Computed example of a mutant assay.
Amino acid sequence: MNPTSSPQEAINSPIVSSAQTSNIMNPLRPVIGSYSTPVRVTGLNKWEGLILEVDDELMIAELTPLGHVGPTVVADFETHLLGEDAQIVTPGDVFYLTVRTVRDSTGYPSKTEHLRLRRLGVWTEDDVARLNAQAQARLDEIEDLFG
């Protein structure tokens, strides 16, 4: 292919490989099996959110960092980010926010976020009794250390 040829001439040329064609059609698209770098997650932060106020389109939440140092902040979120759970969310509910920094094969970062409503489930009397017994055992161990 002549360096001054147009992309269309290169595509119609019998000596152009399919890998060259894909790069001519979209020069930013890497060729599979080439030297391209894979997509990488380069950052991950998590927060626990306590919903303070909610309406049909917006919720206000207090966010506390999980697994990293940072201030507790108050932020607004669109309720649709909770998916179908947006219909049942009420003040006092807890959710988890995960934010990832992703670098694509070109090296440019982008952010993704995921909100998930915490589901506590239904506790049985046996669950409560088991947890109380575990708590008492831990308290006894602490008292033995200082007793």
Rank of each mutant, 00 (worst) to 15 (best):
N45T: 15
P71M: 12
T72F: 07
T37V: 12
F77Y: 03
P91S: 10
Q136Y: 00
R40M: 10
L97C: 07
S5F: 13
H114T: 05
S6K: 15
V89D: 03
A75F: 07
L66H: 11
Q134T: 04
I142K: 00
A86P: 06
M59N: 04
S34W: 08
L58C: 10
G92N: 05
T4Y: 11
E113Q: 14
L66I: 15
V39I: 15
I60A: 03
L97S: 01
V128Q: 08
A61D: 02
T101I: 05
D55V: 04
A75V: 11
S36D: 11
T4N: 12
A61Y: 06
W47F: 11
V73W: 09
F77K: 09
Y96S: 06
E53K: 14
A75S: 13
H68K: 04
E113Y: 13
V69E: 15
V41D: 05
Q8V: 15
E143A: 10
E62N: 12
Q87T: 14
D85N: 11
V41C: 10
V31A: 04
N2Q: 12
S22T: 14
L82Q: 01
L52I: 12
A133H: 07
L81T: 04
L28R: 10
V39S: 09
D76Y: 08
R100S: 06
D126H: 11
F146W: 08
I51L: 09
L28S: 13
W47A: 02
E78T: 07
R119Q: 13
F77R: 06
A133E: 11
A133V: 08
R40T: 15
T79C: 02
G83W: 10
L145C: 06
S6N: 08
R116P: 00
V31R: 01
P91K: 06
A61E: 01
A86T: 04
V102D: 01
L58E: 14
L145W: 00
G121I: 11
I15W: 12
V39E: 13
E9Y: 03
H80C: 05
L131D: 12
I15L: 12
E84M: 10
A86I: 02
L52M: 09
R119I: 13
E141G: 06
T79P: 01
H114Q: 15
S36F: 09
G43V: 05
P71W: 05
I88V: 12
D126M: 08
E125T: 13
P38K: 05
G43F: 04
S105Q: 14
D126I: 08
I142C: 03
D56Y: 09
T42S: 14
G33K: 04
L115H: 05
L63A: 02
S110N: 11
L58V: 15
